[in-house]
């Protein structure tokens, strides 16, 4: 059964249709790539799936539950974690705090309890910090745990975002261009990390990516958007050969043919 199902999801901004009746299914344990030229609606799709934006039409189901129009914080609590195309980290907090804080909503012992000291936040905090440290170690960030998060390099900040998502053991992890701004060796490392998330932790992944190498190395299936419309949904090789996809990316291929014929 599919973990995430989008049926005819549409999002309009005024007169612009950013996402147009897209059907998208992501099976449990799959790594699905979401690609498309700039402005094709990938980021809007991510924001729809994670509840940042409500769809104008269509339905979204996650783990058998209708999550259409559900606010993003509740979607997050159901087990969808995400990273951001433009890095987002809490700037007043250290690397460790950024990662550990993601656990807080899960440990929520109620307001009154925590205010009266009944929820024993100290114990939960220690646990959250220990888990954050273990993950930072795994991501090669242990030495930077006490640094302000935004003082790190872009590549390191992307790793912090991944650790922040991993700590909650999400069922679905939506990665929005995780390879953007990474050096080639770091891209290799990223591929290994994402593969391990699925293979070792069983996390389902929806991967928005421009770097084709990453898409090719990881994805079981690739969905292609163009002007908000789904134009392909197949395995990576088949998608790469699809003439509609080639046209969307290279642009004007058919026109050139027409000119040649005429």
């Amino acid at each position: 059964m599919s973990l995430l199902v989008c049926e005819g999801v549409t999002r309009r901004f005024g007169g612009l249709v950013a996402v147009d009746a897209v059907d998208l299914a992501v099976g449990e344990g799959e790594i699905v790539g979401l690609i498309g030229p700039n402005g094709s609606g990938k980021s809007t799709m991510v924001n729809l799936v994670t509840g940042v934006l409500p769809p104008s039409a269509g339905r979204i189901r996650f783990a058998g539950r209708d999550v259409t129009g559900m606010p993003s914080w509740r979607v997050a609590r159901l087990g969808i974690a995400r990273t951001f195309q433009m890095l987002r980290l809490f700037k007043s907090m250290s690397v460790r705090e950024n990662v550990a804080l993601a656990l807080h909503p899960k440990l929520d012992g109620g307001l009154l309890g925590s205010a009266l000291g009944l929820a024993r936040p100290a114990a939960a905090d220690r646990d959250a910090r220990a888990r954050a440290d273990a993950l930072l170690d795994l991501f090669g960030l242990a030495a930077l745990a006490d640094r302000p998060a935004t003082a790190l390099s872009i590549g390191q900040q992307r790793m912090v975002e991944l650790a922040r998502g991993m700590i909650v053991e999400p069922r679905l992890f939506v990665l929005d261009e995780p390879a953007a701004g990474l050096s080639p060796p770091n891209v290799e490392k990223l591929i290994e990390l994402i593969r391990a998330m699925r293979d070792r932790h069983g996390i389902t992944i929806l991967l928005v990516e421009h770097v084709m190498k990453v898409v090719h190395a990881l994805c079981d299936r690739v969905v292609v958007l163009d002007y908000g419309v789904k134009i392909a949904d197949d395995d990576p090789d088949a998608v790469a050969r699809d003439p509609r996809v080639v046209e969307a990316y290279i642009g004007g291929a058919r026109k050139a043919d027409d000119a040649g014929a005429g």
Partner: peptide, 16 residues
């Protein structure tokens, strides 16, 4: 503090 730093991100990690 999460809300003060970045509301959108706070929501994304499940903060009400």
């Amino acid at each position: 503090q999460a809300i003060q730093d970045d509301e959108l991100l706070a929501r994304a990690i499940g903060v009400d």
